[in-house]
Amino acid sequence: MTDKKNNYKAWLYLSPALVLLLIFSFYPLINTFRMAFLNGYNGLAIVGGETFEFGIENFKTVIGNVDFKQYLKNTVLLCVITVPISTALALLIAVALNSIKPLQKVYQTVFFLPYVTNSIAIGMVFNAMFTRVGVGDLIETQGIINNIIGIFGISPVNFVNNGSTWGANMFVVCTYIIWHALPFKILVLMGGLQNVNKQYYEAAKIDATSKARTFFRITVPLVSPMLAYVIITSFIGGFKEYSSIVGIFGETMGPAGSSGQMNTIVGYVYNMLPKSNLGNASAASLILFAIILVVTAINGYVSSKKVHY
């Protein structure tokens, strides 16, 4: 293997993968850095042969942008709200599913359906469920959610339509994300649970351990590697949230007439592209990259203290 003559063979065999990686991964990655640090870069050569100056103007523009601040707030809030709730729910459902014998496979399939369904399609269904069209008492049409809360005598809420509040929008988006995130987490956690030796539970039972204590002192620690994995990946996914909002609101990234009040960082990046603001788009993606890096590092640090491998 150390024979240097034959090294070219190794490179030859690696070349298909390397070439593809170089073209589609490494080059775009490096180019993003380049674009982000070229002031006002727009992808077009400047008339008169001028070049873009090296600097941090793009970052200044992005951070100074009022919309970007709103989007950053949206993104962070979505993460902070949905990740813990969906993880906790997924764990509870996984434990419940794991403890039933009949119909376990059926339930598993049902819970897994959202994972294989197109997120835009689900978003549109969510929009239909939460919709309410009309002015004041003159309601033309409303979705199932407003019908249900109407049964309890609560007046209809404008969740997603023109003039709806940011809070109502947030509620719908969070519900969507939590629901959509469940299947994958349930699957991973169930895998973890099924690997837990049943004898730990028998030992706990003989020692008269309460259900709650068994859950927190045995189940959670023993699936903690899976939990850590699920939490880290869902934070990463959460910061890149985009398609759910497109699904619910369309490309306006918010109810009509709200100038994209539910938009996220990735949404901002996409917004910048058609405006030939490649510099700003790159800077925003690098900021997102930095945020995810920091959050993942924190996650990694916490799990190294708390996770029992």
């Binding site: 030796n197 030992a203 020692d207 620690p221």
Partner: peptide
Amino acid sequence: LEPEHRGVGLVFQNYALYPH
């Protein structure tokens, strides 16, 4: 009677010590 009310101690074949 459920095992927790019997006042028994059980040592499992592979010990079932809580690994964490």
